[in-house]
């Protein structure tokens, strides 16, 4: 069960190059703002076309520039939780989750209700998403992404829009949830403490390049760049 990337992409003036593999342990992609973290997620999803390289999921090729192959986004079955969650503002909580349940599913409402219960959203089912707290919105976004039964999950700054107090709680819960899914998960963050709490595997991206990867301890033992040094120091 792995998501493997070996891609290069051009986003404006920035060239993003990365080679990484995410297994069942959540992989944390960390780096300063503008390092190309979100772009790397978009390259994986297929929303950006790599200039060269390959993306495979559980051995299936999703994209291979050498063969001119690129599976459309909707066929990749990769769940995506964008920054600020991009919940559908015209739907309530149940509607958002239901949107993700495949139309071929034998009992769509039941599946949605199960997901609501799993993420402790049952009481909020009929609430408009605009009235939810940051933590609640994050859970809706996760439930919606999982409703489609994805084979991998990408999360972009899932903790950035939460206040400090909620963050502590949600951080631990999110890490646990992601470990329990049984699919590869990649989480983008610029925050050292989030990175430390969420995963043991870290990949540091700077100026579009992977500068170091490994556990926090390994990074701390021999920081390769000033950013990594400050990242380890900020962990506290």
């Amino acid at each position: 069960m792995t998501l493997a990337l070996d891609v290069q992409g051009q986003v404006g003036a920035l060239t993003v190059t990365a080679r990484l593999t995410a297994g069942l342990e959540p992989l944390v992609l960390v780096g300063p703002n503008g390092a190309g973290k979100t772009s790397l997620l978009l390259l994986t999803l297929g929303a950006l076309r790599p200039t060269r390289g390959m993306v495979t999921l559980h051995g299936d090729v999703l994209c291979d520039t050498a063969r001119g192959l690129a599976l459309p986004i909707e066929a990749r079955r990769i769940g995506y939780v964008p920054q600020d969650f991009a919940l559908f503002p015209h739907l309530d909580v149940l509607g958002n989750v239901l949107f993700g349940v495949p139309r071929s599913h034998p009992d769509r409402p039941l599946r949605a209700v199960e997901l609501l219960a799993r993420f402790d959203l049952t009481a909020l089912a009929r609430r408009r998403v605009g009235t939810l707290s940051g933590g609640e919105r994050q859970r809706v976004a996760l439930a919606r992404a999982l409703a489609a039964e994805p084979r991998a999950l990408l999360l972009d700054e899932p903790l950035a829009s939460l206040d400090v107090e909620a963050r502590h709680e949600v951080r631990a819960a999110l890490g646990e949830t992601l470990r329990s899914l049984g699919i590869p998960a990649v989480i983008v963050t610029h925050d050292a403490q989030d990175a430390a709490a969420l995963g043991c595997a870290l990949v540091v991206l700077e100026h579009g390049q992977v500068t170091q990867s490994g556990t926090f301890e390994a990074l701390g033992a021999a920081p390769a760049t000033p950013f990594v040094r400050s990242l380890v120091a900020r962990r506290g």
């Binding site: 929303a47 986004i73 909707e74 990749r76 990769i78 559908f88 949107f99 992404a145 409703a147």
Partner: peptide, 25 residues
């Protein structure tokens, strides 16, 4: 644009994205 991108990752066809996301939003 992330609304339609998310819909796409959820397997929504172009028609469904247009009629169930773009128009109502």
């Amino acid at each position: 644009p992330r609304l339609t991108l998310v819909a796409q990752t959820l397997g929504a066809s172009p028609a469904r994205r247009f009629f169930s996301v773009v128009l109502p939003v």
